[in-house]
């Protein structure tokens, strides 16, 4: 069957390696054509050792501030840089509500998540957004790849995180709550938090605080599509 790019609808011509042609290694079905893929910047090694921000070595200014505030043991990984194309992607996916675009990065996210053990907890959208979109963007991105536990409850806030400037974001008070029905998770060695976009780290660190307040003492890691 022919595959079509979820972003531009062009037919995808698979570029096979010799091992794939010989059937020795598996053919990965990409959801994006080469031309669309080129528009995104996949984060390599040259990035902040803590949060994955590009070209900030060994540690970016955001993380430096968080470390001063005592967050010494968290680590984040992001797949791509939040560039103009990623902005367009999220506009189509979240603002316009094109649920089919959740598949664009699935192959790459799957590869990235291989190194992370269960359980995975996601940062949920607000009730209001959920009603508007009729889907949760983070669940859309990760839900087909891993088991997501809805262990965070989002408490109502006045302004959406996306509409705030940097200062306002950093000053946002705690808006997540750990759902105690999931207390069993707290005995795990590691918990991985997933979100769609990492901007200042504020949201992820609220999640971190939540887990610590609930009594979790293990390793906390987090992943997102964009940074």
């Amino acid at each position: 069957m022919r595959n079509y790019c979820v972003l531009c609808q062009e037919a995808i011509v698979p570029q096979l390696t010799m091992l794939q042609i010989l059937g020795i290694s598996k053919v990965q079905n990409s959801s994006m054509c080469c031309r669309c893929r080129q528009e995104f910047y996949f984060i390599g090694d040259k990035c902040c050792q803590v949060c994955g921000k590009m070209d900030m070595q060994p540690i970016c200014s955001d993380c430096e501030k968080w470390q001063q505030q005592g967050y010494n043991d968290y680590k984040h990984q992001a797949l791509c840089v939040y560039n103009e194309s990623m902005h367009d992607y999220f506009k189509r996916y979240k603002r316009y509500g094109d649920f089919s675009l959740r598949k664009a990065f699935q192959m790459d996210l799957r590869k990235m998540l291989v190194d992370y053990p269960e359980p995975f907890i996601f940062i949920p959208s607000s009730q209001e957004h959920l009603q508007q979109r009729q889907f949760d963007p983070t669940v859309g991105l990760f839900g087909d790849l891993i088991n997501l536990t809805p262990a965070f409850i989002k408490m109502p806030t006045k302004v959406a995180q996306a509409q705030k400037n940097r200062q306002q974001r950093l000053a946002t008070p705690q808006f997540l709550q750990f759902d105690h029905q999931y207390n069993a998770l707290l005995t795990a060695k590691q918990i991985t938090i997933v979100d769609d976009i990492y901007t200042t780290g504020r949201t992820i660190l609220h999640a971190y605080d939540c887990l610590r307040a609930a009594g979790f003492t293990g390793v906390i890691r987090s992943c997102s599509l964009a940074r």
Partner: peptide, 22 residues
């Protein structure tokens, strides 16, 4: 089979920029 939002809700991906129609 591609453009759905959940049980029995489908949407048009072509004219999304004018607001999503289901």
């Amino acid at each position: 089979k591609i453009y759905y939002l959940g049980s029995n809700t489908f949407y048009c991906p072509h004219c999304l920029f004018l607001g999503r129609l289901t």
